[in-house]
């Protein structure tokens, strides 16, 4: 293989020398290098452009609302006012607290389900199974990861939501909470369930990578100390894989925060601020996460102030996700340094 390549390289060099008209000048070489750098730089500039563009587009919202945008509620009502406002008196003040809380609760709920389950599955894949079972688990995980979010939304809408409204909700509950919100099956719980299935393959994949990267010397050392295989996994292997697993969890959190379509289909699409004082009905509250709000209200995007409000949602989302992306690297290196691996 190597020899073959060297031969082919030699041939090309000769071709360049023989055909005089085809000889490539150093100018062309530096032009090519410049093009490559330009394209790479464009990719890197994209993120700045994205941030600047949507920030500019939503600047009026931020300057009019100030900090209130993240401390007050009433998004639904403000959208309605903005929609009906006369063109010379647009509404610029928005409060997105309920959207932010909706985003955080659905993502956090999904993480609470998906992280233990994902790490557990990864342990089974890496340490406890072999042969067909291992391959079967791996391909199931990959398929779960590849299913488009709109299909998760569809399944959630046709399977999870009817299940919740049919089995978990009673008429009395619906009557009792009618003054706050309508209890349909579309709820935070449905969102959490669907989101868990969407992020679990991510947690599995990154945990599998992290566990496979743990040197077998650690396992041998632990076994030789008379520690059982299972205790070796929980006491030595998983702690040694901690930084990689954490990176997977943060990545999964980013995915959850940014998920728009599936959540807009199942989570209720109504910007209610969920309250723990409602007891377990907290889980049945309809919520509107930031990303879903953009999809949900996009029909009214022709109104300038609503457009700006949706861009403001985008800015908040972008800040949250960029923060998480940067955190991943930092947390990973802090953990590894403390373990002495770096």
């Amino acid at each position: 293989m190597e020899k073959l390549l060297i031969d082919s390289a030699a041939k090309h060099v000769n071709v360049n020398k023989n055909k005089k008209g085809f000889k490539i000048s150093p100018l062309f070489d530096s032009l090519w290098e410049f093009m490559i750098f330009l394209l790479a730089a464009m990719g890197a500039l994209l993120i700045i452009m994205i941030f600047l563009f949507i920030l500019l587009k939503s600047w009026k919202i931020f300057s009019a609302s100030g900090l209130q945008i993240i401390t007050t509620t009433g998004f639904e009502e403000q959208i309605r006012q903005a929609y009906n406002a006369p063109a010379d008196l647009p509404v610029w003040k928005f409060g997105m607290l309920s959207l932010i809380v909706g985003t955080i609760t659905t993502t956090l709920g999904a993480l609470i389900v998906a992280v233990p389950a994902g790490v557990g599955t990864a342990v089974i894949i890496c340490e406890m199974s072999s042969g067909w079972l291992k391959r079967f688990l791996e391909s199931s995980t990959r398929l779960l990861a590849a299913i488009p979010s709109v299909i998760y939304g569809l399944v959630g809408l046709m399977l999870v939501v009817p299940f919740i409204s049919g089995n978990l909700l009673t008429v009395e509950m619906q009557m009792k909470y009618l003054e706050y919100f309508q209890l349909t099956g579309n709820s935070m719980l449905a969102g959490i369930i669907i989101l868990s299935f969407m992020i679990v393959p991510m947690v599995i994949a990154l945990s599998v990578d992290a566990i496979n990267a743990v040197p077998k010397e650690y396992r041998e050392a632990s076994l030789a100390l008379g520690i059982t295989k299972w205790r070796t996994i929980t006491l030595v292997v998983i702690p040694a894989a901690k930084s990689g697993i954490l990176a997977g969890v943060i990545l999964a959190a980013g995915r959850g925060i940014g998920e728009a379509i599936a959540l807009s289909m199942v989570s209720g699409a109504s910007a209610v601020l969920p309250s723990l004082s409602h007891g377990f009905v907290f889980l049945f509250t309809p919520v509107l996460p930031l990303a879903s709000a953009i999809v949900n209200k996009s029909q009214a995007i022709s109104i300038p102030s609503i457009e700006a409000a949706l861009f403001a949602c985008g800015v908040i989302l972008l800040v949250m996700c960029s923060f998480l992306s940067i955190c991943t690297k930092i947390i990973e290196s802090v953990v590894r340094r403390r373990q002495g691996l770096e």
């Binding site: 010397e217 650690y218 050392a221 030789a224 008379g226 520690i227 006491l235 040694a240 373990q339 691996l341």
Partner: peptide, 23 residues
Amino acid sequence: VFQQPNSFPMSIHRNLKLPITEN
């Protein structure tokens, strides 16, 4: 004891405590 030193990626104290509490 193996060819390569294979202390766990934890503190020295935890390296020693782990086999004691397990056994």
